[in-house]
Simulated assay, not measured.
Amino acid sequence: MDELLRLSSSFGAAATAYAEHRPDYAQAAVRWALDPAPGPRVLDLGAGTGKLSATLVGLGAEVVAVEPDPAMLAELRRALPAVRALPGSAEALPLPDASVDAVLAGNAMHWFDMAVAGPEIARVLAPGGVLAGLWNVLDDRIDWVADLERVSGDAAIGPRDTVSSWRAATAGMIAPSARFGSPECSEFPHGQRRDAGSLVATLATRAGMLVMAAPDRDAALGRIREFLGGRPETADGEFTLPMLTAVLRGRRL
């Protein structure tokens, strides 16, 4: 199996844990992503268990969600029964031409084959519509978070997952073309209340961790657990995990 496909298809086995432990998105970031959109119709693409859809609904958007993994889609439908949720992929969208005003992808755009998905997304967008990728990234400018990144390794915290590297890691995903104008980037403060155990559980839902052999995964999570237990910031009770919601936004021409 292609490595990208192996990673991208790993989440269904952990759909319940993903729904429980993954963070939502900063409302200010979602508002900024939607700001140029010509109307309220929004596609949440690669919607997972509905983390971004829930924020969009809270902001009054008319949401349709598309998700390829059946287990993730089932969690989304359970959590948000009022949202229209469809099976499909970025490369083959089950929507008519010009049927949405914005396409948002939460922690998902890096899984798309944009050579195929770009034209397909442009097809379903109304003229002037917005395409935006959002990523929740750890604030590794803070010492203990940077140390956690080193202990965890790329399987748990990769280059798209930190403030210091997300822009380079996502550059070119929305390429200026006949379909989209030059992309813009911005970052918005966010945070997630965690304790050591729930942070370990959160990192365990990363694709790189999910595809590990069980002994290797257990060893990696053990190292993370030991690190968190030895840091004053994380050893005792709840803490706020410092994050930002990062946004890459382009507009359909």
Rank of each mutant, 00 (worst) to 15 (best):
residue 114 M to Y: 03
residue 201 A to L: 05
residue 2 D to V: 08
residue 209 M to V: 06
residue 177 S to T: 12
residue 155 A to H: 04
residue 74 A to T: 10
residue 208 G to H: 08
residue 195 D to N: 07
residue 107 N to F: 11
residue 84 R to V: 15
residue 41 R to Q: 15
residue 114 M to D: 03
residue 104 L to C: 05
residue 150 R to V: 12
residue 207 A to G: 13
residue 75 E to N: 07
residue 132 A to M: 06
residue 6 R to Q: 13
residue 131 L to P: 04
residue 253 L to D: 09
residue 191 G to F: 15
residue 140 D to N: 12
residue 81 P to Q: 13
residue 85 A to T: 08
residue 119 P to C: 03
residue 137 V to T: 07
residue 81 P to W: 09
residue 120 E to N: 01
residue 81 P to F: 06
residue 57 V to P: 06
residue 56 L to M: 13
residue 30 V to I: 15
residue 5 L to E: 14
residue 111 W to F: 07
residue 148 L to H: 08
residue 69 D to E: 13
residue 129 G to F: 01
residue 104 L to W: 02
residue 30 V to Y: 04
residue 58 G to T: 13
residue 88 G to D: 12
residue 203 L to D: 12
residue 1 M to Q: 10
residue 172 G to S: 05
residue 251 R to K: 10
residue 79 A to Y: 05
residue 201 A to T: 02
residue 232 P to E: 07
residue 75 E to R: 12
residue 129 G to N: 07
residue 173 M to L: 14
residue 106 G to E: 02
residue 104 L to S: 02
residue 6 R to S: 13
residue 156 A to W: 14
residue 160 R to K: 09
residue 175 A to W: 00
residue 71 A to W: 01
residue 239 F to N: 08
residue 40 P to Q: 10
residue 31 R to V: 15
residue 231 R to A: 10
residue 58 G to I: 11
residue 79 A to N: 08
residue 40 P to T: 09
residue 154 D to G: 15
residue 130 V to R: 03
residue 38 P to R: 04
residue 239 F to G: 05
residue 17 A to N: 03
residue 68 P to T: 08
residue 142 I to S: 08
residue 152 S to L: 10
residue 92 A to M: 09
residue 70 P to Q: 10
residue 93 L to M: 06
residue 185 C to R: 13
residue 85 A to P: 06
residue 25 Y to E: 04
residue 72 M to L: 15
residue 94 P to W: 07
residue 31 R to T: 15
residue 173 M to T: 05
residue 248 L to P: 00
residue 30 V to W: 05
residue 153 G to R: 08
residue 125 L to P: 00
residue 125 L to Q: 07
residue 84 R to M: 10
residue 168 A to F: 11
residue 91 E to G: 00
residue 72 M to V: 04
residue 50 G to Q: 07
residue 232 P to L: 10
residue 252 R to M: 09
residue 252 R to V: 06
residue 41 R to C: 11
residue 173 M to Y: 15
residue 182 S to F: 06
residue 118 G to D: 03
residue 211 V to D: 02
residue 186 S to Q: 13
residue 147 D to G: 10
residue 173 M to V: 07
residue 33 A to T: 05
residue 117 A to L: 04
residue 216 D to R: 07
residue 8 S to R: 03
residue 86 L to V: 13
residue 63 V to H: 09
residue 100 V to H: 00
residue 78 R to T: 06
residue 74 A to G: 11
residue 218 D to W: 02
residue 36 P to M: 09
residue 168 A to Q: 14
residue 232 P to F: 02
residue 179 R to H: 10
residue 120 E to S: 02
residue 19 A to W: 00
residue 117 A to N: 03
residue 160 R to T: 13
residue 8 S to F: 15
residue 130 V to H: 02
residue 40 P to F: 14
residue 82 A to Y: 09
residue 105 A to E: 02
residue 72 M to T: 00
residue 215 P to A: 05
residue 180 F to Q: 04
residue 9 S to I: 06
residue 144 W to P: 03
residue 216 D to N: 06
residue 154 D to I: 09
residue 220 A to I: 14
residue 201 A to Q: 02
residue 53 S to I: 05
residue 65 A to F: 12
residue 253 L to F: 12
residue 95 L to S: 06
residue 34 L to F: 11
residue 109 M to G: 07
residue 134 L to M: 07
residue 119 P to E: 00
